[in-house]
């Protein structure tokens, strides 16, 4: 056993960015840098979590986030088990709390949870003895996404202080937007939200952000353009009239991007709807698009999060 590493997180869970301090965020980003390097080495594995059990509990279908967490756990040497909603007993009528207590009895060390309802992850966290990572709860938070976005920005040499970031699209339903608003605000960046008013939550200005309906106006002077995914079911009528109208006014194309600062970076949490929220010529332009880097940073950030949480785990026998 190596000497005890420095604790990074105050809490034994990572449920959101809102509760984190600037120190915690910075420490996580610093730690993730090391894992970026590890991920690029030939030998990508660390024995840090050897013997630990990590469970991916996904109530909402996900490919990217789930595989990113899975890879992060495996690279750290943990045993990773994936549970998705279709194979779980939730479909057989079990309540969320029943599922939680059942899983808890299997004595996992870290539980990674995604759920379609806001607050479900924190409810679960109160019912289990292990660490819980929120991998996205409803329209509330998706902390690892905001952290990986921050890492991507920082590694591109941008300083958060004085940085202007535009988050564009379906803010109303977006946990990515909320986590990013919290993180960027804490780190000293200015945040703008751009989108149709039907997709802007009421009172969103209380987050200390500026809001714009006109994308060209909103992108003026922006250093980072974060696009959000427009869910298919939101496209046809209820919130926006059609995909063609959405693309016309809020789809990021070359022309609208030209309103942003020179050298502005384009980000997207994926998966993209090409021709809806983003034009392929922008998405595929490696001069401006850092979308692939975001995926790489995702694994590193999740390794850092697992590492940080594991530092709070009891080293010896657990109390029963």
């Amino acid at each position: 056993m190596s000497q005890a590493p420095q604790p990074i997180l105050l809490s034994s869970h990572l449920l959101g960015i809102e509760g984190l301090s600037v120190g915690e965020i910075t420490a996580l980003l610093d730690l993730a840098e090391e894992y970026v390097a590890l991920g690029r080495a030939k030998e990508k594995k660390s024995p840090l979590l050897k013997g630990r059990t990590v469970i991916n509990l996904f109530f909402e279908p996900s490919t990217r986030t789930q595989s990113s967490f899975e890879l992060a756990g495996k690279r750290l040497g943990a045993d990773v088990m994936n549970m998705s909603v279709r194979t779980s007993s939730v479909t057989k009528g079990e309540t969320l709390i029943d599922t939680a207590t059942t899983l808890n009895a299997m004595r996992p060390d870290i539980l990674i949870v995604r759920h379609q309802n806001s607050g479900a992850t924190s409810m679960l966290a109160r019912k289990v003895d292990c660490c819980v990572v929120n991998a996205g709860d409803g329209a509330h938070e998706h902390p690892t996404q905001a952290l990986l976005d921050a890492l991507t920005i920082r590694r591109r040499g941008r300083k958060f202080q004085g940085l202007t970031v535009a988050i564009c699209g379906d803010v109303l339903h977006s946990r990515v937007a909320r986590s990013n608003i919290h993180l960027l605000g804490k780190m000293g960046a200015r945040v703008r939200l751009i989108g149709p008013r039907t997709l802007m939550p009421a009172d969103v200005k209380r987050f200390g952000v500026e809001t714009f309906t006109d994308m060209r106006e909103g992108l003026k002077g922006v250093d980072i353009v974060m696009m959000l995914r427009l869910q298919l079911e939101r496209m046809s009528g209820a919130f926006v009239p059609s995909t063609r109208e959405y693309f016309r006014y809020w789809g990021l194309d070359r022309e609208k991007l030209a309103c942003a600062n020179p050298g502005a970076l384009v980000m997207h949490p994926g998966p993209m709807n090409r021709g809806v929220e983003i034009d392929s010529t922008v998405a595929d332009d490696l001069e401006v698009s850092v979308i692939h880097e975001q995926v790489e940073m995702g694994v590193a950030i999740r390794m850092a999060v697992l590492d940080a949480l594991s530092r709070g785990l009891p080293a010896g026998e657990r109390n029963v």
Binding site: S236, G237, P241, S242, E245, R248, Y249
Partner: peptide, 14 residues
Amino acid sequence: TRHLAGEVMTEIGL
């Protein structure tokens, strides 16, 4: 609203 049906908004911008 489309077809004046009162259900789905039209493409107001376009």
